Amino acid sequence: MRTADFHFDLPPELIAQRPAERRDAARLLVLHRKTNQIEHRRFSNLLEFFRPGDVLVLNNSRVIPARLRGKNTKTGGKFEILLLEENARNDWWTMLRPGKRAPIGTQIQLQEKNGGDSKIIATVTDVNEDGHRQLQFSGTSNIFNDLDTLGEMPLPPYIERHGELPEDKERYQTVFAQPAGSVAAPTAGLHFTPELLEKIRALDVKICFITLHVGAGTFLPVKVENLAEHTMHTERFEVGQETVDAVNEAKKSGHRVIAAGTTTLRTLESVARQNAGKLNVHKGKTNIFIFPPGEFQIVDALLTNFHLPESTLLMLASAFAAPGEKIRGRDLILSAYAEAIRERYRFFSYGDAMLIL
């Protein structure tokens, strides 16, 4: 299939700039993939679609304040830094803007949130083929520990901000976030409240977690025309014993596994592909790219947000809508998206949700 096969036109006013007033007040489009039926509900109505014995799997990675600001120590020119991946303590791959003004050897003094100068210097030590800069930080024992005081939440570029809003620190984070490491939120999880999670447990649904640290590559466009030529970014993940036991038991006993988010689905299916269709305790990296006619061994239902045109996330949702089929899933998803646009759903990270059953 081709990248252009996954294009759709989205009115820019439907790109959500702020979250819903309450997390579970977002709208929920329910797609029944076997019958093509669509329901328009609220996220709080999610309870109606669970069955006793279901297993709901969530990604509990915590978003780090990965956006930093600084200035060239010689010229005073301003830079925006987005941390991507830690190579070693104080050694990170980053997206730097404007990158063209940062050749190897450039030194950048990090700024405090109030605009004052910090004592931390970032030196450009390498540039890769994607234009990302490798930075070495000095003046601190570990830049990771300074992010809460220096950094801003790494909102995606389609959320327009002139500085961070107070609500972003809370709302661009799930209520169950634990290990820190993501530079983008696992957005399907943003809709859950502690109260809703307790109501789900009361339905005899097992809730468990994986950890996949979401990279900024989730927003990168597919640059090749033929999908088979695309290479996904690599992300770190971990699956623990409790989740392994719950998921394997559900599959054995005929109960459903419901993945909250594409990151959760990619983690579960990555492990299954390496382990004869079952889960095992696993810690590693994945660059799994699922697109039509993809097959799924673990996940029976997918909860996800509405994704960007021609994105790998939209391709994954299309594959899930009709596993093993090349065209039908894409047509189902694009038809559902067209209806969501007509019904004025809100799209992307702070937007509404979709449940594919």
Rank of each mutant, 00 (worst) to 15 (best):
R2S: 12
A4H: 12
P11L: 11
E21G: 07
L29G: 06
T35C: 06
T35V: 08
F43I: 08
F43D: 07
F50T: 06
N60A: 12
V63N: 02
K74F: 08
G76W: 10
F79S: 06
L82E: 01
D91G: 00
T94W: 07
M95H: 08
P98N: 11
P103V: 01
P103H: 03
G115Q: 10
S118A: 10
K119G: 15
A122H: 01
A122R: 00
E129F: 04
H132C: 08
L135K: 04
N142G: 08
I143H: 03
D146Y: 03
D146K: 12
L147A: 08
L150P: 07
G151P: 08
G151Q: 10
P157I: 01
P157F: 06
G163E: 09
L165I: 00
E167Q: 13
D168P: 01
T174A: 11
T174D: 10
T174R: 09
A177E: 04
Q178P: 00
Q178A: 14
A185W: 03
A188D: 09
A188H: 09
G189H: 06
T193E: 10
K199Y: 00
L220Q: 15
H233W: 07
R236V: 05
F237R: 01
E242P: 05
V247C: 13
N248W: 01
A250W: 03
A260R: 05
A260N: 13
R266V: 01
E269K: 05
N275Q: 12
G277Q: 07
N287R: 12
F289D: 04
P292A: 09
G294Q: 02
D300E: 08
L303I: 15
S311Q: 11
M315K: 04
I327R: 13
R328W: 00
G329Y: 01
R330H: 05
D331T: 12
F348N: 10
F348P: 04
Y350Q: 08
A353G: 12
A353D: 05
I356N: 03
